[in-house]
Amino acid sequence: MKSVIQIKGVRKSFGKNEVLKGVSLDVKTGEVVVILGPSGSGKTTLLRCVNFLENADDGELTIGELSVRFRYAGKKDILTVRRRTAMVFQNYNLFSNKTAAENVMEGLVTARKVPAAEARERAERELAKVGLGGKRDAYPSQLSGGQQQRVAIARAVALNPEVILFDEPTSALDPELVGEVLAVMRAVAREGITMVVVTHEMSFAHDIANHVVFMDDGLVVEEGAPKEIFFHPKEERTKQFLDRIQLKYDYSI
């Protein structure tokens, strides 16, 4: 299968603290990759390095036919990568001065020069798909956390990116709102959209992922099919983590 994104040897330090110590990742077309790991293991930083929200110190990124060294990426490369990817944030980060529909349209109209009428049509279609067709004129402050995150997913999907990066999309939500967001993410996965998801939702990882990556202390400890990782982890570190998580939340896997 063709690779959408390949990352090789990413390194990133914040001051003296080395957060990523040479991480490589290969994401294939249509795949759902879930990155697991304890907090502080560098999962989020890895995701943010992919679309240059953090500037990695070293490593290489290949997206389609474009290959860039993180350290030497120019403004144009960064913009190209950002226009081929989309991101869903932990804190939603909807544009608070724009309505739900305008949030979805913004990247289409301003960044990709899609005609406004067409963008509006696409925005309405995507909002309907996440079950918010009636909320297109609502401002983010008028929506619940779960609704905001669903708008954010619609905003990402509407851009028709080669990959959507999810950065702990359910971590900031009230427990009873997690389900609606996961359901939308499942629907997105079923459409065959390539996703890289950082999450603590084990059931989602188990049911939806094609590929699970376990990270700890800035390195990939183990990766493979979800069945392998969840039922036959090879590394002691992975076992410990899974035991802790599963005891804590009592997931039936």
Binding site: L53, R82, N91, G107
Partner: peptide, 20 residues
């Protein structure tokens, strides 16, 4: 986060400033 959201949908810094 508002800047990051702008960048993530592919806006340049100028566009982000003007629009959001």
């Amino acid at each position: 986060g508002q800047y990051e959201a702008c960048f993530s949908v592919g806006l340049t810094r100028g566009q982000a400033l003007r629009r959001v």
